[in-house]
Computed example of a mutant assay.
Amino acid sequence: MANYEIPLSAEGQRFSISLSGTEYQLRVQWRNAADAGWTLDISDSSGNAIVNGIPLVTGCNLLAPYGHLGFTGVLWVQTTADPDAVPTFDNLGNASHLYWWTDQ
């Protein structure tokens, strides 16, 4: 399995990225509410929404509920010191990481 870390920082951000040869626009933002946290929006290269509001939680393939949308990899969040710890406002990109995994 190929593994690629998607570079993030602990701030809201929007950027374009190629994942397994497909161009996407990703938007990461902090939702400051009870039981909220970091979320991810995925759009196509033209900015058309594919899926919005994916919570950045650990321990699962974030794209599993969206298999019908044709994604060819797995998005996975993991925190360095405790793989099951959810990313906090301050540690995204330095202690909490977002990975793209694929069989290709």
Rank of each mutant, 00 (worst) to 15 (best):
G93W: 00
A64V: 04
S96K: 01
C60A: 14
I54M: 08
R27S: 06
A85I: 04
G47M: 08
S46L: 06
V57M: 02
V77N: 09
F15G: 13
P55C: 10
P65V: 09
S9L: 00
F15E: 14
E11F: 00
A2C: 06
G21W: 08
A95N: 07
N48K: 13
R31V: 03
G70M: 11
G93E: 01
A10H: 14
G73F: 07
A49K: 14
S20D: 14
L62M: 12
S9P: 01
I54H: 14
P7W: 00
L92K: 15
A33F: 00
N52R: 12
L75E: 09
F89W: 08
R27F: 01
Q104D: 15
R31T: 06
N48D: 09
G47Q: 05
T102F: 11
D35T: 08
D41C: 12
D35N: 13
C60R: 15
I17P: 08
A2I: 12
I42K: 00
L75W: 14
D84S: 12
E11A: 02
P55T: 11
L92P: 07
M1D: 06
V77G: 06
M1R: 05
A49G: 07
L98F: 10
S43M: 10
Y24G: 06
I50G: 09
T79W: 08
R27C: 01
W100F: 05
W101K: 07
A64H: 11
Y66K: 12
N32A: 15
N91D: 15
E23Y: 00
D90A: 01
V77F: 14
V28I: 15
G93N: 06
A81L: 13
T88F: 03
A85Y: 08
T72I: 07
N32R: 07
L40F: 05
N52Y: 02
S45W: 08
S16Q: 14
P7T: 07
S16N: 12
V86N: 01
L8V: 00
N52E: 15
F89A: 03
T88Q: 03
L92N: 04
L69T: 03
T22V: 15
Q13F: 00
L26W: 02
G47T: 11
V77M: 15
R27H: 03
L40K: 07
S43W: 04
L56S: 04
Y24F: 15
G47L: 10
T72M: 15
P83N: 10
L19F: 13
T58C: 13
N32V: 04
L98P: 03
T88A: 11
S18C: 05
V57R: 14
I50K: 08
S96G: 04
D103V: 02
P7N: 06
Y4M: 05
A95H: 03
M1C: 11
E5V: 09
